Simulated assay, not measured.
Amino acid sequence: VLGVIVTLVADHVRWRRDRTERDRDTLRIAFTEYLAALSTARDAFARTEPSPDRVGKGHAAIGEHGVYAAQQQLELVAQRTLVDKAGRATLSVLDFHDAVVAGYASDSSEYVHAWRAARQARTALIDEMRIALQRT
């Protein structure tokens, strides 16, 4: 009886460890895909030509880079605080898009402010992602 109990406990511990590792891998993949899509969009926006008629229309452009799909994946696997920070990061990249298409030069205060805000939002998100991975 003792042998059976020890085996069951060992199996349960192993199952929990495997499950925790799968959960961590799922989060890591979702985090990586979102950050990659967000960076791709931001970098593409940095090379966009000014076009004042496209101000406020970054949602379509950011969707083309897979940011919304990756963000929806995060919504399925991540905690609410992380999802909220991801939303703020997406919005900051949209603001950066608007600064670029509005025609602000890369040395203008508007461009620099939008770039820094996007970088800060991304940094805050990455910090939250690290915490989530450590908890898992």
Rank of each mutant, 00 (worst) to 15 (best):
V1M: 14
L2P: 10
L2S: 09
V4Y: 06
I5F: 13
V6D: 13
V6F: 15
T7F: 15
L8Y: 11
L8C: 06
V9R: 03
V9Q: 03
A10C: 12
A10N: 07
A10P: 10
D11K: 09
D11A: 08
D11H: 05
H12M: 02
V13P: 00
W15Y: 08
W15S: 08
R17Y: 04
R17G: 07
D18Q: 14
D18L: 10
R19T: 01
R22I: 04
D23Y: 13
D25C: 08
D25P: 05
T26P: 04
L27W: 07
R28S: 08
R28N: 04
I29P: 00
F31I: 00
T32C: 01
E33F: 11
A37I: 01
L38H: 08
S39Q: 10
A41W: 09
A41L: 04
R42V: 03
F45M: 03
E49A: 07
E49D: 11
P50G: 02
P50R: 00
P50Y: 01
S51G: 09
S51L: 09
P52L: 08
P52R: 03
R54H: 09
V55N: 03
V55K: 06
G56H: 03
K57D: 08
K57C: 08
G58S: 01
G58I: 03
H59L: 15
A60T: 11
I62T: 02
G63T: 06
G63C: 00
V67G: 00
V67I: 06
Y68K: 12
Y68D: 12
A69T: 12
A69N: 10
A70C: 09
A70D: 03
Q71R: 13
Q71P: 00
Q72A: 06
Q72T: 00
L74D: 03
V77Y: 14
A78H: 14
Q79C: 05
Q79P: 10
R80P: 14
R80N: 12
T81N: 15
T81I: 12
L82W: 06
D84V: 15
A86C: 12
G87D: 08
R88T: 07
R88C: 11
A89K: 05
A89R: 04
T90I: 08
T90C: 15
L91R: 12
V93R: 04
L94W: 05
D95L: 05
D98C: 02
V101P: 01
V101R: 05
A102W: 00
A102N: 02
Y104R: 05
A105V: 10
S106A: 13
S109L: 06
V112C: 01
W115A: 08
W115E: 11
W115C: 04
W115M: 04
A117M: 14
A118M: 07
A118V: 00
A118W: 10
A118H: 11
A118P: 14
R119N: 10
Q120Y: 02
A121R: 08
A121E: 10
R122M: 14
R122G: 07
A124T: 15
A124Q: 10
L125V: 11
L125G: 07
I126Q: 13
I126H: 14
I126E: 14
D127M: 09
E128D: 13
E128G: 15
R130M: 11
R130K: 09
I131K: 11
Q134S: 15
R135P: 01
R135W: 09
T136L: 09
